[in-house]
Design a protein around this nucleic acid. Structure first.
Ligand code: MN
Ligand code: MN
Ligand code: ZN
Ligand code: ZN
Lengths: 142, 142
DNA sequence: CAACCAGATTAGAATTGTTCTAAATCAATT
DNA sequence: AATTGATTTAGAACAATTCTAATCTGGTTG
């Protein structure tokens, strides 16, 4: 297969970064691989940094923070706030909601279609709705 | 009116604290007065501390933190998470939702009745729903 | 291909919000 | 009034994140 360069354009991390206007540096490509490799993920900076280190990718914690923020501003990630004092970054940037397991810190997607929010009051004058976040907080049974 | 001691039991801060199993110390009574004085409020620790200082109430920041946490555990307040790295405490402990003005940090109540969340997926096995939080994030118009 | 350079990375310091520690103070009971 | 366990407090400690300023590198130019 000599003509193998016409891959689905979104599967190649470097291409995805270029499309988002970000230089595909070694560190950003490595992190993109971890983030966008398989299915949707919810990561913290510390968690992603640990993963990168475990995979022998040399990326400083400062760069993990920089990269997560840049990816978020470029629309490749969204930030989810469920715990004060810790940020989660979500590879699913579409409209959806979350289960949050308070004991374990695990975040789990709820597709937008599975849940309906009706009767949203109109935003106060001068403001517009940027996003509607539904978080279902879970504790252990009984 | 000599027989004035049968006030509506909830209006007196000291009584409210005793009912919650907390000793009505000078500091706790002062903070309760600020918190439960008029209508529902959303405060941060730093904000409440500044208010207390402005009102010449001598309360340390550590005590403001202690008190907000104790009030929360006693059910007099609830914690609302909308911004990573900062906790809000809400005097409205009933079921309701929020507008959050991202630019200003202002939180505004949406009564539970004004908005309906339907089709909640069942919690994963072993877990139960502790709370459903809806946050409508607002940015400046246009 | 070499030189160049704006942008990216990094170690470590700094900042922010919050909790902890241990000593002093106080509220409530005796 | 004495006692004592709870509370308060200043300041240290901590955790997450951002900043600084020096170094490095990807992409462009000559
Ligand atoms: Mn940001
Ligand atoms: Mn707590
Ligand atoms: Zn998600
Ligand atoms: Zn509220």
């Amino acid at each position: 297969m000599k003509d193998a360069m016409h891959e689905p354009s979104s599967s190649d991390p470097a291409a995805r970064l270029r499309r988002a206007g970000l230089r595909p540096t070694r560190q950003r490509v490595a992190l993109a691989r971890l983030l966008f490799g398989v299915e949707d993920r919810h990561v913290t900076a510390e968690g992603l940094h640990a993963e990168a280190s475990a995979a022998a990718m040399e990326v400083s914690l400062a760069t993990v923070y920089n990269t997560l923020n840049q990816f978020t501003h470029a629309g490749l990630l969204r930030e989810v706030v469920v715990q004060s004092g810790r940020s989660y970054f979500d590879t699913n940037t579409g409209n959806h909601h979350h289960f949050f397991h308070e004991r374990t810190g695990l975040l789990q997607d709820i597709p937008a279609g599975a849940l309906s929010v009706a009767g949203l009051p109109p935003p106060p004058p001068g403001a517009k709705v940027a996003r509607v976040d539904v978080v279902i907080r879970l504790t252990d049974d009984d």
